[in-house]
Amino acid sequence: MAASWRRSLDHHGLDPGQRQGVQRITETALGERRLLSETLLRIALPKLDALYQLVGSSGCGVLLTDADGVVLDMRVAAGDRGIFEHWGLAPGADWSEASEGTNGIGTCITETRRVIIHRDEHFHARNTAMSCMDAPIFGPEGELIGALDVSSARADQTEAFNRLIEAMVAQTARQIEIDSFRASFPKARFIVADGDGGDAAMLLAVDPNDIVLGATRSARRAFGLKPSGALKPLPASDLFGREDGPTGFEKAERAAVMRALSRADGNVSEAARMLGVGRATLYRRMKRLAIGESTADLSRS
């Protein structure tokens, strides 16, 4: 957290001992932000409910923010609401690093990574009674669109328990990403790529011709694509190297083409119709996958 503390002091000019409460935007401004985040809220709120069911009984609250660190919505037990309000953990509160210094929401957003800020790791002394576990949420074009936070009101919250909650927060954030990504490409087919991190949302959206339409942030990083923004269309096969033989994707694609050709008794036009692609497109796929039209070729496994 050293880098975050330096930013809080040197870049934002904050005083760790200042007692003024958390800044809040107006109800009108909050309504405008919620409208801008309408898709995120629609997808995320049921998942906030599910996460709260897991952690709410232990004195934790679940918060969703936009990319600026402003709280859009939250779930908290009625008995804990007073202390959360006192801390400034409420819709409309600004938890950016520029406003609050080192804290779960703001530092997660600034560093675009999951974080745990435990008690006295917070920059402002008035925030050191809480523990915060956060994960960033990235949009369909790899852009940061918000953060998911679980904050604890318990004085006896342990670091081990924090790590357990952090894993649940990260998993929920990735599911929000996946559902947001799928909703943005309603007519696409999705390829799920293997990732190094268990919580990574690595998906590609492709059209009927296997042209890549979009990729999640983790998939962009894995395949060397630009980190955010619309992608230039490119064939999915260009992302999968052949140095070590056919990839799992290519094997699956070849199997699908072979099944269609078999059912069509080798008639390429009929097989193309079954696959929902043009005849010329299927011929290009067959050439790329080394599938010939002869009976001998069609019988190859």
Rank of each mutant, 00 (worst) to 15 (best):
H12E: 10
R19C: 08
G21Y: 03
G21C: 04
G21A: 03
Q23L: 10
R24W: 04
T26M: 12
R34K: 09
T39R: 15
L41T: 15
L41Y: 04
D49E: 12
G56H: 01
G61W: 01
G69E: 06
D73T: 01
R75C: 06
V76C: 11
I83F: 00
S96M: 07
T102Q: 11
N103V: 00
I116M: 03
F123N: 06
A125L: 07
A125R: 09
T128V: 13
A129K: 00
S131H: 01
D134V: 12
P136K: 07
L144H: 08
A147G: 11
L148A: 04
S151I: 13
A153E: 08
T158K: 01
N162R: 02
I178C: 15
D179G: 11
S180N: 12
S180E: 15
K187M: 08
A188T: 00
A193F: 07
D196W: 08
A201Q: 02
M202L: 08
L203E: 08
L204E: 01
L204R: 09
D210S: 06
S218F: 06
R220W: 07
F223I: 07
K232P: 03
P235V: 02
A236H: 10
E243Y: 13
A252F: 01
V257P: 09
M258I: 09
D265S: 12
A271F: 05
T281A: 10
S294K: 02
A296G: 14
L298A: 04
